[in-house]
Simulated assay, not measured.
Amino acid sequence: MTTADLAPLARAAAGGHRTLSAAARLTGGTSKGVYRLVHDDGSTAIAYVWSPQEDYWARPDTTDRPEPAAGLALFRSAHRRLTALGVRVPRILFLDADGTHLPACAAVVEDVAGPTLETALRDDPDRARPALERLARMLEAMRARTAPGHGGVTSVEEGGPAPDGVACARAVADRALADIDEVAARDPRARRARARLRDRIRELHGAVRPRPASSLVHGELGPDHVLLAADGEPVLIDIEDLGYCDAEREHAFLELRFGPWYDVLRAPGLDPDRLALHRLALHLSLVAGPLRLLDGDFPDPAPMREIAEFNLLRALDLAGGAGAGPRG
């Protein structure tokens, strides 16, 4: 969207006291547009825009993508839950749930001025270490927030389907089996290893024992989804996937994305059987997802190919190395 496109939304968010002078789409978003709004007085804000045109996952043959309005609803419920827990998220300045100011649902939030935690860990580890320790405390608060169910925040907290103690693990295993079939149709190495990968997922799922409750998880908490505020406090972004599942799902992702820094975030008492299932399922998801994106018009395909390749090799290794030979 252009500056002119976003001007009505910016004007409504600013209460008519400022004029939008520039807007730029920020990189990285795949399911919503993220824009920095710059006003004539130098102040800034961030606009989230949920529309099919901003969703690189949307394709003509896609039937399971949520409606754009659902993205805003998920954001609002996640924001409310995290704020109640004392987990810092960007402050909401304005919501347009009806598409009044854009042909899309949108939110305007504060522009957290600091770098991502990923950048700080690379460039300023002395500053990043206290933020990482604060993030660990936030994660513990989220892990302690439990519910007897599995799924999105609103559906679970309003009394979703009766839990059976393994619902999250079953959903993850089913998704992983579908990912295996999808990847096997695209890559000969996965095709050769398809039976072994499926057997390993079933084996790992079979080892999972029931648990009475699920924990609150971000779902995709890499260091690029944590901003540092001026006071050094971590601020979580891309929160729409917040929901209840195994804490091991969160920690499999943290372990992968934080690498050697994960030791600061490591939690005691995780179930090794669930963790093993979530690790393999995560790698499979990070092959199938990027390959799916590459079917569309994603503007920076090279990193997606690298992500898919790295995670395919890790998945094959976790499944016993079957099929890890040449591509052809």
Rank of each mutant, 00 (worst) to 15 (best):
R170A: 13
L204Q: 08
G165I: 02
T83S: 15
G159R: 07
S285Q: 15
D241S: 15
H101A: 02
G325E: 09
R266H: 10
G33F: 05
V217N: 12
H283D: 15
A195W: 08
V235L: 06
R88N: 08
D297T: 14
V226G: 03
L275Q: 04
R249I: 03
A229L: 06
Y56R: 02
L284F: 01
G152P: 00
D273N: 05
E203H: 15
V38T: 15
P260D: 06
R127L: 15
R279E: 13
P161H: 10
L318F: 08
R122P: 01
E182W: 11
A128V: 11
T83E: 14
V264W: 02
S285T: 14
D61P: 03
I92Y: 04
V226W: 13
D5W: 09
P68R: 03
D238K: 06
P212T: 08
R257S: 13
R211N: 04
R209V: 10
V34D: 01
T83W: 07
E54F: 04
R327M: 09
G296W: 01
M142T: 04
L293S: 02
A162D: 10
R209Q: 15
S43G: 11
D179K: 04
H218Y: 09
Q53I: 01
D5P: 02
D41W: 10
V109C: 09
